[in-house]
Amino acid sequence: MSAEEVRDRQARSAPDGAAVDGPVSLDHLADRSVAVVHEWFGATGGSENVFRQIAAQLPHAERFVLWKDEGVDEPDLRESWLARTPLRRTKAVALPVMPLVWRTLSRERFDVVVSSSHAFAHTVRLGVPERTRYLSYVHSPARYLWSPSFDGRGANPLLAAPRRILQAVDLRLSRHVHSYAANSREVRDRIRRYWGRDAVVINPPVDTDFFSSPPEPERHQSREYLLGVGRWIPYKNFDLIIAIAGAARLPLVVAGSGPEEANLRRAAARAGVAVSFEVQPDRERLRQLYWGAKALLFPVHEDFGIIPVEAQACGTPVLGLRRGGLLETVVDGRTGLLVDSVTAADYLPLLRRLDELDRDRLVAHAAGFSQQAFSARVRRWIAEQTAR
């Protein structure tokens, strides 16, 4: 499929088959005061990219964050008073203070406030509900509060009582939000279950143009190895990825970084196949790795998962867990193969079916998650919620 065909597909299609309409005007907000807020601002996270993309639709908006990490060169971010305290160094310790910070962020008052939230940013108050329109894009209700089985930071039994208190605070301080957007159906369901609110689904933006259009030499690599990409932490199941490669007798490349590196290197030494580690590859190198891989192994329950979309944009199929975001980003049997198992042997039949998949179809499917598609959907959401 040519680059032109891919871009045409991006303009016309959505991942769920719904049409993406033409540009939506936000001119009615030009003379209104607007704020866009985010939690803490790190270097390269997917949530930070969502914040940037939302802010790009509202170029005159003030941009607020709790703090930005050391070394982050992001202009025009207004940090909260929390940034001037030692609490900025430890997110877990700062967490109970965050609702107070969002309520004392600024004395300014805004007509429209759009939050990018994965902790307490959706509780921000920069006006009153009668005069201020509050919208919140949610990456997930705070997992360490609401889904501790997914996030070890909240799983300690000693934290059960504080967690219940913070859950009550989260609910009480977010009643003023007029509209929620969720980054996936998985997150929309959590918003309904935990907060009793509905949400429109707007999948996060992926730079599919970059990943689907590499230099010519990268497009003709022989696809001989399996690939695992992500943060090297326990719930990402990289130990299982290594076990799958070992059982399949196929070489593996593990790309990323994280605290589990030493454990994973020990597991790789026992795998019986060649396992190479790529520590913090840049985007160009990551694209090379995707284009050279036989398949991306992704046996992970994620809220959404940008990595599988990047892989499909490179024509690389995904073998993963039939849960969470993969149900949205992978079409089972067409752009990847999914299984209800975290046992290495159960992935071997999937590897034997890779030739069934059309790589051009993978690229076309991934285009539905493009930055252009995100911009169109988020503009429509903002327009619909502020034109009243």
Score class of each variant (00 low, 15 high):
177 V>S: 03
271 A>G: 08
202 I>G: 00
246 G>Q: 04
247 A>T: 07
243 A>C: 05
243 A>F: 11
231 R>K: 13
250 L>V: 14
244 I>A: 08
252 L>E: 02
245 A>T: 03
177 V>F: 09
185 R>G: 13
275 V>W: 08
248 A>Y: 07
277 F>V: 09
216 E>D: 12
250 L>K: 07
203 N>T: 00
200 V>A: 12
202 I>M: 04
217 P>W: 07
183 N>I: 01
250 L>Q: 03
179 S>F: 13
225 Y>V: 03
185 R>F: 09
242 I>Q: 08
179 S>T: 13
234 P>H: 14
180 Y>H: 05
220 H>P: 00
240 L>D: 05
244 I>D: 10
262 A>C: 06
267 A>K: 12
263 N>P: 00
205 P>Y: 02
243 A>W: 01
213 S>W: 08
266 R>Y: 12
220 H>S: 07
233 I>D: 05
226 L>G: 00
206 V>I: 15
240 L>R: 02
184 S>N: 03
220 H>T: 12
231 R>D: 00
164 R>N: 08
254 V>T: 05
172 R>E: 11
259 P>C: 14
169 V>P: 00
241 I>S: 06
261 E>P: 02
270 R>A: 15
212 S>I: 12
179 S>E: 14
210 F>L: 12
245 A>W: 03
162 P>C: 04
161 A>N: 01
178 H>M: 10
249 R>E: 15
276 S>N: 13
257 S>M: 14
203 N>R: 00
189 D>R: 11
205 P>E: 05
199 A>M: 14
275 V>R: 00
232 W>D: 05
262 A>L: 15
222 S>A: 15
163 R>W: 01
225 Y>Q: 06
261 E>A: 15
273 V>G: 01
171 L>D: 01
209 D>N: 11
166 L>C: 01
245 A>V: 15
211 F>H: 02
173 L>C: 08
162 P>R: 02
225 Y>A: 04
178 H>R: 13
